[in-house]
Nucleic acid binder design. Structure first.
Length: 465
RNA sequence: UCCUCGUUAGCUCAGUCGGUAGAGCGGGUGGCUGUUAACCACUAGGUCGGCGGUUCAAGUCCGUCACGAGGAGCCA
């Protein structure tokens, strides 16, 4: 009989075609159980979330070697796909040959038992070989694809905004410096300041904290655009939903207002959830069973109901009416605290909610001033379990108003000359938002810590690997 | 950065009133003819996070530092 190369995903998806066939597969041992007459290998070949069971018998010339293999070892197997006698799997491979490709040393740290996520973070180079991380990173890849697919199908142009930015005027917090200066011999100007004219770019440069200001320029040319790339924040944030390096998706749409913006965000969220449920059913079932029991029910609800939309003022009223005791009091004009946001989305409304029209004093300079002169057309999308997942706004397209806001906030208008130019040459109402990619993954998988949805997370005091 | 909690075998943890260290899993050896975190027996494995203090005596009490986690702020 002819031996065909196969992968585990195909055998699961097209079982009929493979039943009775001789196949060659290769992969890594997840667990092994052996007696002195036969044994079982659970093999993962990387093509699929699930493992395939390989049965091997003492008739193999290297039976002893195979039976002694440790978890993690790499093997090649040839054998026949047959129906399984065991109850837990519909089929298995009866081995004719098992070649040991790479043994795993006996101190391979992953055991066939539950490990804590904290421990697995210390072995981030090995954790992709666990069930949970296999599922997380398969879903992460799918969500990235779904996002590109969503925007591409709607005619959006994908723009690569710079990673290294030339000014610190992006206004979203502490930035990482980019420099080739010798830290031990920093050139100074005559008044004692660092002489950046001697630096690589001849000026002070940083890693980007947002592609928004840059992508707005492309919005005016291509109408509907988005960025999808890494973002860096040098904030000393120590929470389960902050990382120093993360990925962000930032669409920007022309001739659009804050409501168009919310429509787009809602449609996008629904699209990617639907796509993942469709294309990663095994992974999603795993998350629902082992990570977050209510996950599938919650995502179903999102697919089948409208997101709530309330203004900041209404949110404040709702919170005041609730009579709930908060650690921080609710007050119009103050930003909503995390406890307020969570109560809104998790207890009061129990679904994703857009809060929009925030007081201007707590929001960024570029957000469009509403007619009441007190609020700006900003919106946050809050979701149960994660909190703020999207932040966006309609942008101030009126030159005079924008200039006024820049000055009110004590910023230097010269830093924004090209951003202001947009309001002089064919200005138009436009809007956009930033979706935290990892926060979306957390929401979709039920994973509770951002460090566990990034391959090699960077957080304060941690850049190992 | 602030508050709280934690750090004991490779991993997950227990350790009472202060009296010199335990279990399960994993590893090793042997056994077992359909396993499913296989099972059974035996076995090796410890600077109790670091430093300092109190005490006859510290894993245990106190101080301090490091690291980790949760919460807050910042935000995506």
């Amino acid at each position: 009989m002819k031996m065909v190369k196969a992968n585990v995903k195909d055998i699961y998806r097209k079982t009929e075609k493979f039943m009775g066939q001789d196949v060659k597969i290769s992969g890594w041992v997840r667990t092994i159980r052996a007696s002195n007459a036969f044994g079982f290998i659970e093999l993962n070949d990387g093509s699929f979330f699930k493992n395939i069971q390989v049965v091997f018998e003492s008739s193999l010339e290297n039976f002893k070697q195979v039976a002694d293999l440790g978890t993690g070892s790499a093997v090649k197997v040839s054998g026949t796909v047959i129906e399984s006698e065991g109850a837990k799997q519909p089929f298995e491979i009866k081995a004719k040959q098992v070649a040991v490709v790479g043994e795993a040393d006996e101190d391979f740290p992953l055991q066939k038992k539950r490990h804590t996520f904290e421990y697995l973070r210390t072995i981030a180079h090995l954790r992709p070989r666990t069930n949970a991380f296999s599922a997380v990173f398969r879903v992460r890849s799918l969500v990235a694809y779904a996002i590109h697919k969503f925007f591409n199908e709607r005619g959006f142009v994908y723009v690569h905004t710079p990673i290294i930015t030339g000014s610190d005027c992006e206004g979203a917090g502490e930035m990482f410096k980019v420099s080739t200066l010798d830290f031990h011999k920093i050139p100074k100007t005559s008044d004692g300041r660092i002489d950046f004219s001697k630096d690589f770019f001849g000026k002070e440069t940083n890693l980007t904290v947002s592609g928004q200001l840059a992508v707005e320029n492309f919005c005016v040319a291509f109408r509907n655009v988005y960025t999808f790339g890494p973002t860096f924040r040098a904030e000393n944030s120590n929470t389960q939903r902050h990382a120093s390096e993360f990925w962000m998706i930032e669409p920007e749409i022309a001739f659009a207002d804050i409501f168009d913006d919310m429509d787009l965000a809602e449609e996008m969220m629904r699209y990617i959830i639907d796509f993942v449920l469709e294309n990663a059913p095994e992974e999603m079932e795993f998350f629902n069973n082992f990570i977050d029991k209510g996950l599938l029910e919650r995502l179903d609800l999102v697919l089948n109901s409208e997101f709530a939309r309330i203004t900041y003022t209404e949110a404040v009223e709702l919170l005041e009416k609730s009579k709930k005791q908060f650690e921080y009091p609710v007050k119009w004009g103050a930003d909503l605290q995390t406890e307020h946001e969570r109560y809104l989305t998790e207890d009061l409304l129990k679904k994703p909610v857009f809060v929009y029209d925030y007081p201007k004093d707590i929001k960024a300079f570029y957000m469009r001033l509403n007619d009441d002169d007190k609020t700006v057309a900003a919106m946050d999308l809050l979701v149960p379990g994660v909190g703020e997942i999207i932040g966006g706004s309609q942008r101030e397209e009126r030159y005079d108003k924008l200039l006024q806001r820049i000055e009110e906030m004590g910023l230097d208008k010269d830093d924004y000359w090209w951003y202001l130019d947009l309001r002089r040459y064919g200005t138009n109402p436009h809007a956009g938002f930033g979706l935290g990619f990892e926060r979306a993954i957390m929401y979709i998988t039920g994973m509770q810590n951002i460090r566990d949805v990034i391959p090699f997370p960077r957080t304060p005091k941690n850049a190992e690997f």
